Amino acid sequence: SISSRVKSKRIQLGLNQAELAQKVGTTQQSIEQLENGKTKRPRFLPELASALGVSVDWLLN
Rank of each mutant, 00 (worst) to 15 (best):
I11W: 07
G14P: 00
L59E: 01
V24P: 01
A18M: 11
L20T: 02
V24W: 03
Q22Y: 11
L15D: 01
L48F: 02
S8Q: 14
T26P: 01
L60Q: 08
K9R: 15
L13M: 11
L60V: 11
I2A: 04
N36T: 11
S4H: 13
S8P: 02
G25I: 02
E32Q: 12
V6C: 11
R5I: 07
N36I: 10
Q17F: 07
K40N: 12
L34D: 01
W58I: 02
G53Q: 09
L15S: 04
R41V: 14
T39A: 10
S8L: 15
R5T: 05
S1V: 12
W58G: 01
I11Q: 10
V56M: 12
S3T: 06
A51H: 05
A49K: 01
R10H: 00
S55R: 07
K7S: 08
S55M: 06
K7G: 03
S50T: 12
G53M: 07
D57T: 10
G37N: 07
L48K: 00
Q33I: 08
E19W: 04
L52M: 05
L13A: 07
L59Q: 00
N36F: 08
R5Q: 05
T27Y: 04
K38I: 15
L20R: 01
A51Q: 06
S8H: 14
S3P: 07
Q29N: 11
L48I: 07
T26A: 08
L20M: 04
N61P: 08
P42Y: 13
A49H: 00
P42L: 11
V6I: 10
T26C: 14
P46F: 14
A21H: 01
S50Y: 13
L48Q: 00
L13P: 00
E35G: 02
I2K: 03
E35W: 02
K38N: 13
A51K: 04
R43G: 12
S30F: 14
K23R: 14
A51N: 04
G53P: 00
R43A: 14
N36Q: 12
V56Q: 09
S3C: 12
I11M: 13
Q28R: 13
R43P: 14
L45P: 01
Q12P: 01
V6E: 01
S3D: 06
S30K: 13
T26S: 07
T39I: 15
V56G: 04
